[in-house]
Amino acid sequence: EQIEHDQKIGIKAIRLFLQSKTSYDVLPVSYRLIVLDTSLLVKKSLTILLQNNIVSAPLWNNQTSRFAGLLTASDFINVIQYYFQFPEKFEFVEQLTLDGLRDVERAIGCDQIETASIHPFKSLYEACVKMLESKARRIPLIDEDEKTHREIVVSVLTQYRILKFVALNCKETKMLLKPIKDLKGLGTIKDISTCTLQTPVIEVIHLLAHKSVSSVPIVDDQGKLINVYEAVDILALVKGGMYTDLDLSVGDALLRRPEDFEGVHTCTMNDRLSTIMDTIRKSRLHRLFIVDDEGKLVSVITLSDILNYILFGE
């Protein structure tokens, strides 16, 4: 009962914390925000993202002098899918500007991701709810210029940054001692699409797009987890111009990963949110793959699952 009771109290305290803080509070005292003009070539924008160690950036349309949503890995997935459907359009892809990404979305028939946004002085709780509703993993903070009433992207908040802010500032995370297997939503075993190292990377990219997931686990013939292909890996693939080699295996595609990649996080059903939050506090954890004693893949816990549980679980 004690653990049950502490879990409820801990979750309640974290909820109150999220309701009492604003997105503005998460922002450092000074920070940089990189914005890309939509008339940039997609290829150039990729170079800028990689050079600045970022995987997403707000877009600025200098015709309308307004913000035009966020550039994310999904856009590069769409470009690869477009090239796969229309290989003769190689030149068009090479000359594609950020303005043209919406046409690519229409051409491959994928629904345009509506970028939800929120005012910086709304509560963190509301920002989390909006992100979960829009299935987005990041949300632009939008205010307006006091004089011209033009919108300003103040920053872009990610689920990871919010959970890290909670892990750093909420000591009640230490009270979350219930094992994952007993947590509804986190311990629930999901039907996950997997692949092997020999699977052509284009098939994995199709899975990322059609399942709207940000990673596909790679297992061996006994079902043991051996690696993961993530949506952000696409940037390195496109940067290397390797997207044209469509029967490239996912094992080979992963060789493009930067040397400083920190590795894939795994856990078991006996782990707890207290130690998961402590790991988020210390390292860049983007998801956790649940494995059994033999290392076989059981399920996955995403940051959305953790936020969902914190906001609506128990």
Binding site: K174, F261, I276
Partner: peptide
């Protein structure tokens, strides 16, 4: 904090892969 079995999958590290 209680013991944890959170780990980094060795075969996912670039040099080992």
């Amino acid at each position: 904090l209680p013991t944890s079995t959170i780990a980094i999958l060795p075969s996912s590290l670039p040099s080992i892969h």
